[in-house]
Amino acid sequence: MFSRFKFITARVYLGFTLLLFMVPIVTSVTGQDFYLDLLTRVLILAIAALSLNLMVGFSGMISLGHAAFIGIGAYCVGIPAYYDIHNGFVHLGLAMVCSAVFALITGAICLRTRGLYFIMITLAFAQMLYFTFVSLDEYGADDGLVIYKRSEFAGLLNIENATTLYYTVLAVLLIFFVLLHRLVQARYGRVIIGSKHNEQRMQALGYNTYKYKLVCYVISGTMAGVAGFFLGNFTNYISPEMMDWTHSSELLFMIVIGGTGGVFSPIIGAAVFLLLEEFLSGITIFWHLIFGLILIAMVLFGKGGVHGLLLRWDEKVTNGAGQ
């Protein structure tokens, strides 16, 4: 599947994936559980970033409400667990169905708008959901819910075990990557990308771009719901704060750091973002200043993110070889 990428880009991504497989081995040998946790978080948010990039990178829809889906997924673990329902298949199924339905309803309205209006209306729906959960006293309202027991998969998988959880998330992330990669390659993907650049042309060609975009929105939302399912399980805690718009903009940062052009790149973006955050926050309580400046610099000067950088490198090498 890397055949489409030129050499260096493919190798770096493949190397990065292998590295991800190595993480639990290294952390268990060195006894550094904390870093396994940190990387599990990276993978979970990478799923969310990957899903958001389908909208932002490929169909040009900038959403400031993507964290709402993460919240839905997490509450689909927390609320059943509150009623002592710990069946993971139920949780995961609920997470996917609920986030898909929310995506379908809000998407149907949001996609009538574009540009700034789309950004603001996705934000509005996320805010409404946020305030809904804030008012749900039974489920902890602002204070959230502690999940005392992680989802159970009938003895098939024990995600209470940190390593198992890590590999499960990694497997899901890679499956989603392959699915999205295929999707973008397929005719469907070409319509979506085409309508990003020239929607009228695609409509003139007879494509109902609204429907295509809506499908895209629902797929993206459902995948983020799965990320939320894992996040709720991972942190053992959920709160409406997970749906805050600042988390949505953090996902956008991950995408831009990785580079919006690639399917794989948001994974790198998530890793860079979270590791940078972890590193800087250990230095000073004023780390947001440095972090903010780095983020601004990345947008202003880091054209195309990591993906863009690698592609340019590839180009140089190929051109060099051609001479």
């Binding site: 900038i62 956008l252 200043l289």
Partner: peptide
């Protein structure tokens, strides 16, 4: 640039201004 860059840079600016105010 596109709206995405506007959102991100100005979000970064919020972090910068808030921290500067704290300092």
């Amino acid at each position: 640039n596109d709206h995405l860059d506007h959102v991100l840079v100005t979000f970064g600016l919020i972090l910068v201004f808030d921290t500067l105010a704290h300092m």
